[in-house]
Design a protein around this nucleic acid. Structure first.
Lengths: 195, 195
DNA sequence: TGTACATCAGTGAACGCGCGTTCACTGATGTAC
DNA sequence: TGTACATCAGTGAACGCGCGTTCACTGATGTAC
């Protein structure tokens, strides 16, 4: 992790540097600009260099998506940290969820978009951690019966709202903050919370 | 509309033929395969021919998306046609919504995906018709107050579920039909239906 | 502490790909007289 | 009903683009002795 300051022929930690470069591109230029060559350029190496660290573009994208999930889980944990009850925690996480998506739309899109089925060990683990986080919270707030289906209710609502908000396709009469409040407040009655 | 059977130098209705070709490509090969050249190939003309009918690829894509919305509105109308009450109509439309997305994932993706902000007159009109359909139904089922925000609640839930189901990224423990039932049944308590 | 040498991690040129778009052209169609 | 001619809607070749990937190479690094 000790970052070299001197310029060396060998980079030192190109693998992680490429992932970081990808995150920067993603946030500044969007998911369409996220190519292997662009990551190499941003990291300051020739475009053939990444071949020594990733088998192909999809391996790189998968690990970039994985860092997205890692941030995501941390971000939701933080959002829910100070809520006094499971139900309040669920609502806090709902707001945190949508906030993450709206603040980092391109990362969110890479994580959850329909485009390419990415896969890497790191991504698999990070995705599963995010799902566990959600399922556990729902279970606490609404009981363990039908845990997965209830999690899907919550997930569908916040994911749907996030995608619509991100897509810039909402009709102009929609008041986003007001609608968001309703969506989050509606989570609890929808899953049938238990006291 | 009279389709010519003889082969002529002039196509006769290339504009609509290109849109139809696009729909076929979309459904068979996915949104990534939907290029101007592919549409021209499928329609049996040279790849320069579309220039006489669309200013560029985005104009063609926008009109293909528009036909998607037109089908979509018809499909939901049909799904809700025989429901006995507004609340039942809402649920029927919820199921119809997700069914449309799952049956035509690529078309749905073009219509609602985040990718490109498409625009054409026909698309604008078709999108607005779909929104009106939803907002009216929600208003009937749950009263006119906060109509837009309530519509966003419903839309978020069914859109989110559709996208997740389409994306092939759901964790294996999720039972899709069971989860779908919960999502749709949860719509009414979430928006706070009024009798 | 030196030195020989294997291995690692870069470079830069090249390949082939499909894309959107432009261009000069030409065959087909429609209209004025 | 014929004919001249303008316009429309195609063709096919070409352009430039950025992409992912491959390749022979070379400089840097680490290790055995």
């Amino acid at each position: 992790m000790a970052k070299k300051t001197a310029k060396t022929y060998h980079h030192g930690d190109l693998r992680e540097a490429l992932i970081r470069a990808g995150r920067t591109i993603l946030e500044k230029e969007g998911v369409g600009a996220l190519t292997l060559r662009a990551c190499a350029r941003k990291a300051g190496v020739s475009h053939a260099a990444p071949q020594h660290h990733f088998a192909g573009i999809n391996d790189l994208l998968a690990d970039i998506a994985a860092t997205g999930f890692e941030d995501f889980v941390r971000s939701l944990d933080k959002a829910a940290a100070h809520a006094p009850s499971p139900v309040e925690r669920l609502k806090a996480m709902g707001h945190g969820y949508v906030a993450f998506a709206r603040e980092r739309p391109a990362v969110y899109q890479l994580m959850f978009g329909v485009a390419a089925p990415l896969a890497s060990e790191r991504l698999q683990a990070a995705k599963m951690a995010a799902w566990k986080q959600l399922a556990n919270l729902v279970s606490e707030a609404a009981g363990p019966d039908d845990k997965e289906a209830k999690a899907m209710q919550v997930w569908s609502a916040v994911h749907g709202f996030s995608m619509l908000a991100i897509s810039q396709r909402l009709p102009p009469m929609v008041n986003i903050p007001q609608a968001l409040k309703r969506v989050v407040d509606g989570l609890v009655p929808a899953i049938g919370s238990q006291p």
